[in-house]
């Protein structure tokens, strides 16, 4: 599989995520879409990391170039996990207060 396949896949996932965030009003679904976007980026990071690493080892077998991309992925996963825990907590609180998970309820900032 060439790098293009990975790129297309992750762009597709990212777009689905964006469209989901933009169009859906259910907070849980929006949340899932955000996760989808994060993971599409993860996918891309891993794919490029692999590509660069292969190119580097071809020239110099001991090279570690390109591996830092995969490190980022772990960071993102950690952050995403933290975010999910906070975010879900907010959603739960919101549900308790309003008996709804509709984002349009959250336009109080406007006032």
């Amino acid at each position: 599989m060439t790098i293009q396949h990975y790129i297309f896949l992750s762009v597709a996932l990212f777009s689905i995520g964006i469209i989901g965030v933009l169009t859906r009003r259910n907070l849980i679904i929006i949340f899932m879409c955000v996760e989808l976007m994060l993971n599409s980026v993860n996918l891309l990071l891993v794919a490029f990391s692999k590509m660069h690493h292969l190119a580097a080892t071809a020239a110099d077998a001991a090279s570690k170039a390109g591996t830092d991309g995969q490190l980022f992925v772990f960071f993102i996963m950690v952050v995403a996990a933290a975010e999910v825990s906070v975010g879900l907590a907010i959603i739960v609180m919101m549900y308790r207060n309003t008996h709804s998970v509709d984002v349009n309820f959250l336009n109080r900032l406007k006032h």
Partner: peptide
């Protein structure tokens, strides 16, 4: 512009 609609903000961002 500050409509309070999260979706609108994100749309602008995108």
């Amino acid at each position: 512009l500050q409509s309070g609609q999260v979706a609108a903000y994100i749309l602008m961002m995108v």
